[in-house]
Write a protein that binds this DNA or RNA. Sequence first.
DNA 1: GTCCAATCATCCGC
DNA 2: CGCGGATGATTGGA
Length: 679
Amino acid sequence: MERGANSNPTGPIDKSRVLDVKPLRSLKPIFSPQMGSSAPFSGVPPAGPFAPGGAPFHPFAFGNDSQRASNFANTIPSPVPLNSFRTPDTQYANGDAGPSKARGRARKGRAAQDDYGNSDQGEDPSSGRRPRGSSQKRAKGPANLSSIQVSIDDTLDQFLRAFKLTALETHQQADGNKELVKRVLLTYNLFRRRLFQICEAKEDIPGGTNRPDLKAATTLMTKGARTNSTKRVGTVPGVEVGDIFFFRMEMCMVGMHAPTMAGIDYMTVKLSADDEPVAVSIVSSGGYEDDGEDGDVLIYSGQGGVQRKDGQIFDQKLERGNLALEKSLHRANVVRVVRGVKDVPNGTGKIYIYDGLYKIHESWVDKGKGGYNVFKYKFVRVPGQPQAYTLWKSIDQWKAGSGTRIGVILPDLTSGIETLPVSVVNDVDDEKGPAYFTYSSTLRYDKPFDLPVPSSGCACHGGCQAGDANCPCVQRNGGFLPYNSLGVVLNYKSLIHECGSSCLCPPNCRNRVSQAGLKVRLEVFRTKDKGWGLRSWDPIRSGMFICQYAGDVIDASSMMELLGSEHEEYIFDATRAYPPLDYTSDGFAEVPFPLVISAKNSGNVARFMNHSCSPNVFWQPVLRDNGEKTYLHVGFYSIGHIPPMQELTFDYGIPKSDKATLRRKRCLCASLNCKGYFY
DNA sequence: GTCCAATCATCCGC
DNA sequence: CGCGGATGATTGGA
């Protein structure tokens, strides 16, 4: 049955006849709500209504290439020959889809979305369509420890060591904190993705591809890599209101909601003689439309009443979770509420939003299907908590074009160049928009760097397939496809080899993620004290591709001349020392050549990403080749899951030399481990 | 050990 | 071809 999604009671029902509730000794909460103890919500609340029409103006010009080149020439001392902007060949030589593929995209943007937005479904029947239950059969077969199993065990051990989870103390498993929760979730998601990647490429192992979410979680929990295993009423240490999860198992691992499936989590408390169940959290998996009256109220259905095997329906009983909710109501205890919403890009998947603490205000019995009794509970959100679920509802309205919002300066910064619009919003001061620049989604090379001539491209007409050992692109990536079909990077490597213009695969090939344009709805916004910044309307999965760093490739000597000028803040320098990712599968390799990008005059959303000492985004070098030359790109990916409207930041790194010529800037990231400065 | 709950990827049919 | 519904192996905890 649909959980937690129903309308109001049709009428009052005499509860005492149905609910066999003994009189309670006390109506005081057993636990204090712990309201003040949670850290502040770091997401930015949505701006309220904005002026009708929005009165957009266009502070940025989007000229043709020759105009762009002359603008460029007027503003900087010609670090790049002008002819590099003139011919289409040069513009596309970097592997950004190539002329034929760019045809529909050049100025129309959204019209070409179908070419890039849809992920492939393989045509190879052997790879994608395994008979259901095959893994189960294999699991029960003769126990042969395959080489794949061994490599997965090694992989897990490396993850655990990298994130210092090999031997968690008992108290760390029992009670967590923000840092520990973060480590557990990062490890889980990295391992889950790597597990999927290995299993889809080689052969199936039990649970590997069918349910990597389960397999990864049970493996980690067996090793003790979990936290907050002690159940508690109220806030969970390290989990903040607004945090999101993409799997039930994630909530399990950090003590948010222990049951792997059930919607009601409860614990038994001892009060003098009696043991009494008390609810600690619920997961409401209803869709958007049929929730309670507004975002702060939830009508939740009790559990049970349906026979698992044959779907037979009967009256729900006041036991287990239902009894716990009833007790929590009478004690006026707080209950954590997790809202499940549909994950639009994934289709079948769900996203779970921690919506903070609620109290149950009333309960009643409704008649469900076939006239059988269903318990209903009215949850009301405890006031004073940061916005979470209601923010999602607001964003839905912004997308639908209904509702209004203050501070919208520009509905689409990219003028249709990107696959999705990028709005510009300022609701904090009088700035009317970022300084002039030309929006471009591509990285423009004057000339390619000299690298060994790459091998020829692939001939995967239906898109590259995981497990196709003959595909040269799979081979270049160590036998794997680096991304899944959603555009999530599956494995941290020192270098991703994407398909290039010499490959015969279509633009929606899984190995062309960074060329396929934006997948999440981004917004350039005015921060309180850091100038302009970047954030997303959409939730972002761990490892999801966000954008590349577009601009003009310049050489190192040109960069030196620009340091100290206003130009400096729009330079991306891949030769800096970046804090290591906590884990890469192939150790650390230098970026193959000294790539420096200027986005001062021409660039994309990436130029607005601010520095943080605790970033939620990292970058990886991405290679594409056109059959003769190799071009390096910079791809940005999320580290963990990122809730909507949280600022996207990455670590700017430290210049390896010539620090003296660089101005040290004061860091305002406000994270606990802030260094206080950045370059 | 047994039962519970409803997940999630995949399949299947409209 | 794109969905929504059906299917079934699956899990931690009571």
